[in-house]
């Protein structure tokens, strides 16, 4: 089974949800015109990224009119959206939601909030506490948000939980200009996407935004990487656009026959050793206190 997907590699207006929603609608319309079945938007693309004190002002409840409107849009095209989620107890999460047939199928709350160097997410956001795959009308998928992917355990869990498609929502800032062909942030991401696709034999859909926020650039370069590690579709750097490609479960099947890495994975060994490590860490901690 194959299905057509698209990535909306867009610029975002900082803190203006309604303007960003109208861009969402524009891209949904374009994607429908191209018979796309699944459309993926980047991290925090309904709000902007370096929002600081604006975070609570542009947060959305999962039953808010904006999400309701997007749920309605999802009746004939599945959508992955990036937004700030306000929980009932007034916590703010850097979240993504998978919308299908007018319903919210799954919400992922970013687990790893970068708070170093140029990043200060943990100052403004609460962190999520789970990584799950979920069933869609196509196959099992998982969503991770940007820094989540810099922790290989996140991808490991998603893959073992059965995801055939890993959707990565990103707002990756351009940094590290050298004599090299690409920015260092670009090179690192492209390496990660390729390695994960190949090691966990799954499709990686990497949706990165473009534009500037207070002088910081986002480099785009969204891509679809096949389970073989081959980059099937590549978006332009720095330019807005709808990037379309295909997820092929047939290709996935072949790749998993060639490289049955997931079949041979020993989760019990991992758990056993992790339990040992965690208990040793606890002992050390207790001895110190």
């Amino acid at each position: 089974m194959n299905f057509k997907i698209a990535i909306a590699q867009i610029d975002v207006v900082m803190g203006d949800v309604s303007k960003n929603l109208s861009k969402y609608r524009d891209y949904i319309k374009r994607a429908r015109g191209k018979k796309v079945s699944l459309l993926v938007f980047p991290e925090l693309s309904l709000t902007g990224y370096f929002l600081k004190d604006m975070v609570p002002n542009c947060a959305l409840r999962i039953d808010s009119p904006v999400i309701e409107a997007l749920k309605k849009e999802s009746k004939n095209i599945s959508l992955v959206i990036g937004f700030i989620e306000e929980s009932e107890d007034f916590k703010y999460y850097n979240s993504s939601a998978y919308l299908e047939d007018g319903k919210v199928i799954h919400v992922h709350r970013k687990v790893y909030l970068p708070t170093y160097g140029m990043f200060e997410e943990a100052r403004y956001f609460a962190s999520g506490d789970s990584v799950r795959s979920f069933m869609t009308r196509f196959c099992k998928m998982a969503m991770l948000i940007c820094e989540d992917v810099w922790h290989p355990s996140s991808v490991y869990i998603a893959a073992l939980d059965g995801a055939s498609v890993l959707i990565i929502l990103s707002s990756s800032p351009s940094r590290g200009i050298t004599a090299g062909k690409k920015l260092s942030s670009t090179t690192t991401w492209e390496t990660l996407n390729k390695v994960y696709a190949q090691l966990y034999t799954l499709h990686v859909i990497f949706a990165n935004r473009i534009g500037f926020e207070d002088g910081v650039n986002f480099w785009g370069g969204s891509e679809i990487v096949m389970p073989s590690g081959r980059v099937a579709v590549k978006g332009a750097y720095f330019k807005e656009g709808l990037i379309t490609g295909e997820v092929s479960l047939d290709a996935l099947k072949r790749e998993r026959i060639f490289s049955p890495l997931l079949r041979d994975e020993k989760a019990e060994v991992t758990i056993k050793e992790l339990e040992r490590i965690v208990s040793q860490l606890k002992t050390i901690k207790n001895e110190r206190t």
Binding site: I177, T178, K181, K182, L183, F212, G215, N217, Y237, F238
Partner: peptide
Amino acid sequence: MKELKINTKLTKEILVGFIQNE
């Protein structure tokens, strides 16, 4: 010093975008 060498084409692209956008 080779570390100070920059890809000038890429730098130009980002800076031109910066001026336009901001």
